[in-house]
Nucleic acid binder design. Structure first.
Length: 586
RNA sequence: GUUCCAGUAGCUCAGCUGGAUAGAGCAAUGCCCUUCUAAGGCAUCGGUCCGGGGUUCGAAUCCCUGCUGGGACACCA
């Protein structure tokens, strides 16, 4: 095992980041010993024993009835000079540190280029469906999760090399259309749209998004109390569904108006949609979709339904209603048509639905129907459900007076709190900084817990930003930038690692590829929010202990600046994945 | 009723799909600004990982069981 041997692996794994390279190397050693096994290098839980640990020997030993410690020794004997301080502890843990020059060569190579710190995965095409705002209704707190998680997953997918196509999939067909039109009729406005015999010109509708919101609320209240009104709402909804051109014309204008305000909120949340489509767009695909689905449909209680049960189901799987008993379409009809359309237009490998967990059973039904009727061929349909946002009482979030909290009011609320806490001497770009901090606060809190678990939404906690918060990260970014601004160039090489505080930062960064892999595997951002917080804390600790710009020894100062460059690079790019914009001062 | 998910520090949550002494933030207490942004750092306090069995070198994690909470179960989306 001479220099040649080491050189060999350097070349083969040139573009793998450090731990990935070492994992492959360990796997090749195991192969020499006759074992095919995936190796994971973890940060050591006992740092006095080494930087990293490998736990593979215990599981291998169990599988092949070997002695784990003997196996660990066999591996240890084969390790090259990159490994230092190799020791075997307990039942067969291998602990080790690395040659510092080896570590630094990787850090220097990657400190300016984030892409090389990230694993690139087998490429695939993914349609990601998130957002899901309803036309003519204000976005509420629940829409925030879909937007935040969806946008971050879109960016994460791109980062690892997927082709991501995002679609907002507006809820622009359904009862709210009947509500709105009924309200217009009641007010006696634009009556030509309601007159069968009218031959003249149809006026362009002039409402603001705010008008529409109020009109919906008013109609909704009335329809709940008033049977006749509800009947009218149903009738108009059904007419639109059947393709009544006058109604459709009017409704589409309302959707367009409403989309303006919806887009504005999504812009504030830094969401990007390649497609700003909705259920209306799926409408034209319904006949073609039905051609494929028809053979499986049968009548049940007046509706046309499809069985989606499978033999080894342990749970009840009710049939899916595809056409309602009044002949009108339903949510499922439009979703199936949308799947058909996406398959035809994009032929994706996967479609991800970032929608509330509570729709889990429904999506299971729709996906089964889509597979059964072969609406898709080689495409995986995935429901990436997220947990419910609850209030401090553990029940679904409501405002103090029991109403639904609109997303824009929530943003305003946080924004006001931020304003109170901002320093008075910040005058230039004050609004912009305030907005960035507001969105960072919301996003970080929203992405912090595991995607699928419910979480409690506490406005007080959200607007206070002590500790693990978006503003904490941005504050760290401000410090990093402020240092880099005060030096001439950015070309600093890490020449030596002087203190443990620096080493801790570097070791944390070596975990990044595994963090990204885990995130994309689980489609959850909490690993990244955690990593960011850990990295920021480690940096702040270093920052508080050592003074970078006044360091006298040249090599140490340059290494510090190399560290600052690297940490900034990593944090900047990870915040970008979360769709959090950074600031220069705060 | 059927089924899915959850139960970890006073509170809010992590815990890398079985690893070593279970971790963060908040709250509480005490320190640290003539130095790169104190929205920061350090220290202390805080645990029957819901209860009970089982699997094994090893369990918060896997299996069984009980308790508690929440969600979903046909014409809303």
């Amino acid at each position: 095992m001479g220099p040649y041997f080491i050189e060999f692996f350097y070349i083969v794994w040139e573009d793998l980041f450090m731990l990935k390279e070492l994992e492959s190397y360990l796997e090749s050693i195991l192969k020499e010993l006759g074992y095919e096994e995936i190796v994971t290098i973890l940060p050591s839980s006992k740092r006095d024993l080494g930087w990293y640990q490998v736990n593979i020997c215990m599981s291998l030993a169990k599988k092949y009835h070997q002695n784990p410690v003997e196996l660990a020794n066999l591996i240890k004997d084969k390790l090259d000079s990159r490994f230092t301080n190799v020791n075997i502890a307990g039942p067969g843990f291998i602990n080790f540190s690395l040659d510092t020059n080896y570590l630094m060569s990787f850090l220097n190579k990657n400190k300016d280029n984030f892409q090389t710190l990230v694993p690139s995965l087998e490429s695939k095409k993914v349609v990601i469906d998130f957002g899901g705002a309803n036309a003519a209704k204000a976005l509420h707190v629940g829409h925030m999760r879909s937007a935040n998680i969806g946008e971050a997953l879109r960016r994460l997918g791109k980062l690892v090399g997927y082709e991501m196509i995002s679609d907002v999939h507006l809820g622009d067909l359904g009862r709210q259309s009947g509500m709105l039109l009924s309200e217009i009729k009641k007010r006696g406005e634009y009556l030509e749209y309601f007159d069968d015999s009218y031959q003249g010109k149809y006026r362009k509708v002039e409402y603001t998004p705010t008008d529409l919101g109020k009109m919906y609320v008013s109609a909704n209240i009335d329809a709940k109390e008033n049977e006749e009104r509800m009947a009218e709402v149903r009738e108009i909804t059904a007419e639109i569904d059947k393709g009544n051109q006058r109604y459709l014309n009017l409704w589409k204008q309302l959707v367009a108006i409403s989309s303006i305000s919806i887009k504005k909120v999504y812009d504030e949340l830094n969401c990007h949609f390649d497609l700003f489509e909705g259920e209306l767009d799926a409408f034209k695909d319904i006949p073609k979709m039905l051609e494929k689905v028809n053979p499986y449909l049968y009548e049940s209680e007046g509706a046309m339904v499809m069985d989606v049960k499978e033999e080894n189901d342990t749970k009840e799987m009710p049939p899916l209603i595809v056409i309602k008993k009044d002949g009108a379409t339903i949510y499922a009809t439009r979703d199936l048509a949308t799947i058909y359309s996406r398959e035809e237009r994009f032929n994706p490998d996967e479609i991800w639905y970032v929608v509330d967990n509570r729709q889990g059973l429904y999506f299971e039904q729709v996906f089964r129907a889509a597979y059964k009727a072969q609406l898709v061929k080689n495409c995986n349909l995935l429901h990436l459900g997220f947990g419910t946002i609850n209030g401090t009482d553990g029940k679904p979030y409501k405002t103090r007076d029991g109403g639904v909290m609109e997303l824009s009011s929530l943003i305003d609320l946080i924004s006001q709190e931020i304003e109170k806490k901002m320093k008075d001497d910040i005058q230039t770009n004050r609004e912009e900084i305030k907005n960035a901090l507001t969105i960072a606060t919301l996003k970080y809190a929203d992405l912090m817990s595991f995607r699928a678990t419910d979480y409690i939404f506490d406005p007080i906690k959200f607007s206070s930003f002590d500790g693990k918060t978006g503003p904490y990260l941005l504050y760290t970014i401000v410090r990093l930038k402020s240092i880099l601004k005060k030096v001439e160039t950015k070309e600093y090489e890490i020449k030596k690692i002087t203190h443990d505080e620096e080493l801790d930062i570097y070791l944390k960064i070596t975990e990044l590829p595994n963090i990204i892999e885990r995130s994309i595997r689980d489609k959850s951002l909490n690993y990244i929010t955690d990593f960011l917080f850990d990295l920021a804390s480690l940096f702040n600790k270093f920052y508080n202990t050592y003074h970078i710009l006044t360091e006298k020894e040249k090599d140490i100062k340059e290494s510090y600046l190399g560290l600052v460059t690297l940490v900034y690079n990593v944090m900047h790019n990870l915040l970008d994945v979360l769709a959090i914009k950074e600031v220069d001062q705060m």
